[in-house]
Nucleic acid binder design. Structure first.
Lengths: 336, 336
DNA sequence: TTGTAGGCGTTATCAG
DNA sequence: CTGATAACGCCTACAA
């Protein structure tokens, strides 16, 4: 395999010149540049990425830690990230996180200098020790859909989204509105959800009843969504509408309603979350989360952190959008 | 940041010894090793991955090229790959491929020496030029669900799977069996599918009629699956069963049948492909493809190629399994 | 505008 | 068993 020395010899120049050509420095005469380019072409030379990283003390790699949900939204995010990296020679070190142990191991490794130039934590909260190390060592880390005052982050305002969804349902005439939330920490106990506050805010603002039994946190599977929906429907006063914090859960909710003999939307309105082709296909009214934009913005910001100076951590929120399709409508009868 | 020299000084040994300790060489006395370990601990030293790669002339990275289908099976495969890499210090350079241009660019880059130690092409055929380069340069490349005589590959026998599915349907009494196939090349024209031969074999073997209009190739979306199903149902002699080559398409097929007023399975039996929680949840009878095992095996074999000697290219096929649930049954009436 | 020399942090080799 | 030393291939001053 040819090295930079071979190219230099072949072109009759020094290695410095070759290096300058490689790195698009302006300080090379057109003629010399052409000779070098020819030599490179002739020898089939391409610079060794490892040696390059070694010399530059930079890897041109971004660590991506992402929950191993077997779901489509992950891929959408990845696409967005890669979109930001097109015409950059930066590549992605992806690690799909399965559980808490796995996550902690990944956290341990991800800010070892020399592994990657920065890390992107997708849809998972940073551990306390990670946050501390990051701040200490000034390692570029960005949370995509997570928030931590000490760290940079990009996300959507789940509370605002939930608020809008609830308000929309109230506008249709619903008063008994339930929430099937998703766990805030995918690897922790399901103690807090991502959009409960917004849900509560909307209910209070609209003077609708707030009931504990209308609030559920479920795993990101159709089964869990179906189970939670069944429980809601078996209440003495079942909800007439339900906000569901993911697509997978929403599929389960739709099916549970159907099996229970409830028509959607007349007997139960359902608002989903995210937006994929299955949702579109099922006519699911959803909160559309701009996954690809999130990915792109996150990667762009992280890249800026890697190259530029570290300012104060900053949080950016992208707007969500309510996509109205066919699973929401006015409640059949107002018993309240 | 401490280097190996700092550790050596702190431990009162030479860097060679530290290196040996780091690399678990046996040629270090217990006492010396302990002193080195202590020094490492005390200084908080960890070896620079870049320098290490430079010295070893090996990156400990595997390139993974994977189609950017926004679907769950991708993640399952990734999980399998990562499972094989646990307790290896190998990491994954993932690239989600969007289209043919993208793929070709990735092919161009992926076997540049020094980027990664090997490449895994998931669910996409290698280009001719890639195959040639791989053979020439002895670069370790493995196809996961693809086949090329010149390259190593791991996959499942789609034809055998289709054959089994068709045979199963015939066993239930079906004679008019259709196929909604998936394109063999995700980025090429949809001219050939992945399991048509097996489908045909089973039909011929069972003396069932073979009709061109029963064979369709559709994109991997619910919409495409639904459209193909609608067309099938509008035939003057519509099929009573349909084999669908993906989950996403199968969801569309189920819905199209329902909208057309056909009961599943009594009026239309549906066999899906792959197996995820949505399929499980919907009660879809499917060909279960061992995605995680595929990923694991592929990574294991690739790792072997990277470290060991290159033998002749070899293809391994993993068995699929027919998972019987609720979308297949005897046809309602035999008109034939 | 160009060439040269030094350094980057390991691993590997080879004497001792 | 251990220590010194030579690569490794590039980048980046600095000198010309």
């Amino acid at each position: 395999l040819p090295t930079i020395h071979d190219v230099a010899r072949a072109a009759g120049v020094g290695i410095g010149t070759v290096s300058r050509v490689l790195n698009r420095s302006e300080l090379v005469s057109a003629a010399t540049r052409q000779r070098v380019l020819d030599a490179i072409e002739r020898l089939g030379y391409s610079p060794s990425p490892i040696a390059r990283a070694f010399g530059r003390r930079r890897t041109d790699k971004l660590d991506v830690l992402i929950p191993a949900y077997a779901q489509a939204f992950l891929v959408e995010i990845l696409r967005g990230i890669e979109a930001a990296l097109v015409d950059t020679d930066c590549t992605l070190l992806v690690r799909a996180i399965v559980d808490a142990d796995d996550r902690d191991r990944a956290f341990e490794a991800c800010c070892v200098k020399g592994r990657a130039d920065g890390a992107l934590l997708v849809w998972m909260p940073a551990s306390d020790s990670l946050a501390r190390r990051v701040v200490e060592e000034h390692f570029p880390v960005l949370l995509l859909n997570g928030s931590d005052e000490r760290l940079w982050s990009v996300g959507v305002d789940h509370d605002a989204a939930a608020e809008r969804a609830v308000t929309y349902c109230m506008g249709l005439g619903h008063r008994r509105i339930a929430l099937i939330d998703r766990p805030a920490d995918p690897f922790g106990a399901p103690i807090s959800g991502i959009c409960r506050d917004g849900y509560l805010r909307a209910l209070k603002h609209g003077d609708a009843p707030v009931r504990d039994e209308y609030q559920r946190i479920a795993a990101l599977t159709p089964d869990a969504g179906a189970a939670a929906t069944r429980e809601l429907l078996q209440l003495s006063e079942p909800p007439t509408a339900v906000i569901v914090a993911s697509e997978a859960q929403a599929i389960g909710a739709l099916d549970a309603a159907r099996r229970d003999g409830r028509r959607v939307p007349s007997e139960l309105s359902v608002v989903g979350y995210n937006d994929n082709d299955v949702a579109r296909f099922l006519g699911l009214t959803t909160v559309s989360v701009p996954l690809r934009d999130l990915g792109r913005l996150a990667a762009e910001q992280l890249l800026a952190l890697v190259t530029g100076a570290q300012a104060q951590p900053q949080s950016t929120y992208l707007p969500t959008q309510l996509t109205v399709r066919r699973t929401c409508g006015p409640p059949l009868a107002e018993r309240a």
